[in-house]
Simulated assay, not measured.
Amino acid sequence: MSLVLFLGIVALAWTRQWRTASIWSDYPVNADNVFVGLYILWLLVETPVAGRDADSEGKKTSDSATCLVYGTAQALTFLSALWFPSVWHSPNIAHFFGMGLFAAGGCCRLWAIRTLGKFYSHLVRTIPRHTIVDSGPYRFVRHPAYAGMLIANAGICIAFLNAVTLCIFLFALVPAILLRIRIEERVLFAIEGYSHFAQNRKRLFPGIW
């Protein structure tokens, strides 16, 4: 899926370049292209995780097919943002706020992935001697990687605002993430120490949920 997403992004970014080049003619760089570059960099950074997950194929997982739904919704959010015309007809603060939000969400997610190390996976599964990690962003919430994903994609919606992308984000990606958290926690609560870890931490955002 990562390869298909990469090729789709490149193709749509090329098409968008010709459709919206005039929007950025008064700026030193095309911010849409910068956004695409940041997204591709994000994909490349997470590629080793996907490769590690591939080694788990055939082993027992508890995904209930949510990995595919979640990944598809994530891909469609950005692909639709590149394809459908934005309500913004000229550069404004929303473009740069959205890009900043995307960068913040991506950094939060990568911080979480780095903190978990070998325990992080795109699949819902446990590994031998699985222990609870409560450092880094896990000091504040139980699922900072998902929080980062939501923040990053909210940034995409703001920067490339259109009805299709917003609907995919709200009605496909957000529900997919919430469902994965429910399924994931069925597995996590079976690990010794997770109940204590979860007592004083919200799932995604401190003081909210």
Rank of each mutant, 00 (worst) to 15 (best):
P91Y: 02
E184V: 08
W88I: 00
L123Q: 12
V141P: 08
L166T: 15
S90Y: 07
L101Q: 08
V133C: 06
K118Q: 10
F197K: 01
A190H: 06
R109S: 07
P175F: 03
L116F: 02
S2L: 11
V133M: 07
T165G: 08
Y120K: 09
N153L: 00
F197Q: 00
V69W: 11
V141Q: 09
I183L: 15
G207W: 05
Q74N: 08
I208T: 06
L178T: 00
N153A: 01
R16K: 15
V124F: 07
R16V: 05
V34T: 09
Q17V: 00
L5F: 12
T126I: 13
L178M: 01
G148F: 01
G100S: 14
G155Q: 00
D63P: 02
N153D: 02
F205D: 13
P48V: 13
I23E: 03
N33W: 15
W24F: 12
D26K: 12
Y194K: 10
F84M: 12
K60T: 11
L101C: 10
K202D: 03
T72G: 07
Y27M: 14
R114L: 02
G136E: 06
S195L: 04
G105K: 10
F102P: 05
S80Y: 04
G117D: 04
C108G: 04
W83A: 09
A147V: 05
A145G: 12
T15S: 11
A94I: 03
